[in-house]
Design a binder for these strands. Structure first.
Length: 214
DNA sequence: CCGGTGATGGACT
DNA sequence: GTCCATCACCGGA
C-alpha cells in the first residue's frame, strides 16, 4: 500500500496508474494517472510553492497528506496536487496527465478543444478541466469513499517508470529529476524543459532516465 | 510535427 | 512590477 506520509519524490512514481475520480454534478469522470511531478518539503525545493514558508494560498500543503492542493495559475488554469508527507512538511505531487477511463462524453463536453480522447487530460490544466476540478475543491480529502474527489491506488506498482527534470521549473529546482511518467503512454504531455524558449541552458536535459537513478 | 506567442489574474517581493 | 508547476492557436516545414 502506498504511504502518502512519505516524501513527495518517493510517493510520486507510486501514483502512476492510480485512478483519480471526480463526482461533480452527480456524474463521474475518472483518469488513470500517467504523469506526475514531485515537489519537496518546505525550505529544500526552490521549485515548490511552499519553499518560502506558509502563505494563505499554500496552507493546504502544510496540512495532512491525502488532501488535494488545487491552485490557480496563468490567469485561467487550475492544477491539482496530492499533499504528501507529515503535517508541516508541505510535500506535494502535481498530477500532470492521465488517460480518461470513465465519463468520456462529459470530459469532452468540458474540453471542446480536445481533438481526441488522448488530449482530454494531456497536461495538468487539461486534466483538471476534464474532471471539473477548480479552487472550490482545494483541501478536499482524497482517500474517503463517497467524496467529490477519490484517489484509488494502483493494484500493482509500475515496473517501468520514465524520469526527467520537471517541466515548468527553472533555476536550482531544475536540477532534481522529479518528473515521473509511464513510458509509451500517448497521454503523457510532450516534454518541454523549463526556460526552453530561446535558451540553450535546458537543451541537454535527459528525457528518459533509468529508474535505477533514483 | 514543430516552435513561437498572446491571453489573463493573482500571489508575492 | 514581476513571475508564473499552462493552453490554444497560428504559421511554417
Amino acid at each position: 500500500m502506498v504511504d502518502l506520509t512519505q516524501a513527495a519524490h518517493v510517493v510520486a512514481p507510486q501514483l502512476l496508474g492510480a485512478l483519480l475520480s471526480s463526482r461533480v454534478g452527480g456524474q463521474t469522470v475518472t483518469a488513470r494517472i500517467t504523469e506526475v511531478e514531485a515537489y519537496a518539503a518546505v525550505g529544500i525545493d526552490p521549485g515548490s510553492h511552499a519553499f518560502r514558508g506558509q502563505t494563505p494560498r499554500t496552507s493546504v500543503m502544510f496540512g495532512p497528506a491525502g488532501h488535494a492542493y488545487v491552485y490557480f495559475t496563468y490567469g485561467m488554469h487550475w492544477c491539482c496536487n496530492v499533499v504528501t508527507g507529515e503535517v508541516g512538511e508541505a510535500g506535494a505531487v502535481l498530477i500532470r496527465a492521465g488517460e480518461i477511463t470513465e465519463g468520456l462524453a462529459l470530459a469532452h463536453s468540458r474540453r471542446v478543444a480536445a481533438r481526441g480522447d488522448r488530449e482530454l487530460a494531456q497536461g495538468p490544466a487539461r486534466l483538471t478541466q476534464a474532471l471539473g476540478i477548480d479552487g472550490e475543491l482545494n483541501g478536499t480529502a482524497l482517500l474517503q469513499e463517497g467524496g467529490v474527489l477519490t484517489l484509488r491506488m494502483p493494484e500493482q506498482a509500475a515496473t517501468k517508470v520514465g524520469v526527467s527534470a520537471r517541466t515548468g521549473v527553472g533555476g536550482a529546482g531544475a536540477l532534481t529529476p522529479w518528473r515521473f511518467f509511464l513510458p509509451d503512454e500517448p497521454t503523457v504531455s510532450r516534454y518541454r524543459p523549463a526556460k526552453a524558449r530561446g535558451s540553450r541552458l535546458a537543451k541537454g536535459y535527459v528525457q528518459n532516465l533509468d529508474s535505477e537513478l533514483w
